[in-house]
């Protein structure tokens, strides 16, 4: 973990309520699947947001405007942010096999971008399934394609790509391992139909984001874990579904 001041160099909409922000500052040690924790004026708790990309002193995040904090971020044009970086365990790419499958749902898509980049750089053949509710919500399809991944888009209402959920597209794809991030019902559905091992990234309401407060604990078959510190990525074999 590191604390730093980051300069907002870009903050633009990708869809009606999803924004892309680029932050310039120290990027040493930032890994795929990790998150950053942003302090905002007038709000007590920091806002944890997953890292979409990180290179050359610039961190890219993609966030959905859902509450007070993200609304405040949406309205920022420029300025500096107090940010904690290097939070969470991130994805482990060493176990992916030759042709991993990446499945993202909504704002669960962004952390898979940096992961896809890394897997492709390691010489792996990457398939990506991006799931959204409807056509107007789709983002980053072209960006994944530009990396060299095979991309399938699903929409729940069938207005774009394959109709249905990400799991409806899984059957046609041959994969050695899977990585996913998205809403918990999606993670659970993937857990149930997947034919290989995999890594799932979870979300929980956090206090500190760096392992001190025990606000985001969960039970796993490998013992109690803190989503912020021991996660957010858990391996399929350790997960206990409680909710």
């Amino acid at each position: 973990m590191k604390q730093g001041i980051y300069k907002i160099i870009q903050n633009v909409p990708l869809t009606d309520n999803v924004m892309l922000m680029k932050l310039a500052g120290d990027t040493e040690g930032v890994a795929c699947g990790q998150f950053i924790n942003i302090k905002l004026d007038g709000l007590y708790l920091r806002r944890p947001i997953s890292v979409c990309d990180c290179e050359d002193g610039v961190i890219t995040i993609i966030y959905k405007v859902v509450g007070k904090g993200t609304k405040q971020m949406q309205d920022m044009k420029e300025g500096d942010l107090d940010v904690l970086t290097g939070l969470g365990n991130g994805y482990n790419t060493s176990v992916s096999g030759d042709n991993p499958l990446l499945l993202g749902g909504g704002v669960g898509v962004p952390p898979l971008y940096m992961l896809a980049k890394k897997l492709i750089a390691e010489g792996k053949k990457v398939s990506v399934v991006l799931g959204f509710n409807t056509k107007s919500e789709v983002f980053y399809e072209d960006e994944f394609r530009a990396l060299g991944a095979t991309v399938t888009v699903t929409t729940a209402d069938g207005s774009y790509g394959t109709k249905g959920f990400v799991t409806d597209a899984m059957g046609d794809i041959d994969y050695s391992y899977f990585y996913t991030c998205g809403p918990e019902p999606m993670l659970k559905a993937i857990y149930n139909v997947s034919k290989t091992s995999g890594q799932l990234s979870f979300e929980e309401r956090m206090g500190c984001g760096f392992g001190a407060c025990m606000g985001c604990s969960c039970k796993t078959l490998y013992g109690n874990k803190r989503i912020c510190k021991d996660g957010p990525v858990l391996v399929k074999e350790e997960i206990i579904w409680e909710k």
Binding site: E204, R205, G215, S217, N224
Partner: peptide
């Protein structure tokens, strides 16, 4: 002790609520 179920944290004006439950 594992403590309480999540969510255990709520934000407030100039503060927060926690219900970790002595994990």
């Amino acid at each position: 002790r594992f403590g309480n179920p999540t969510p255990r944290i709520a934000e407030c004006t100039a503060g927060m609520i926690n219900a970790v439950g002595l994990q």
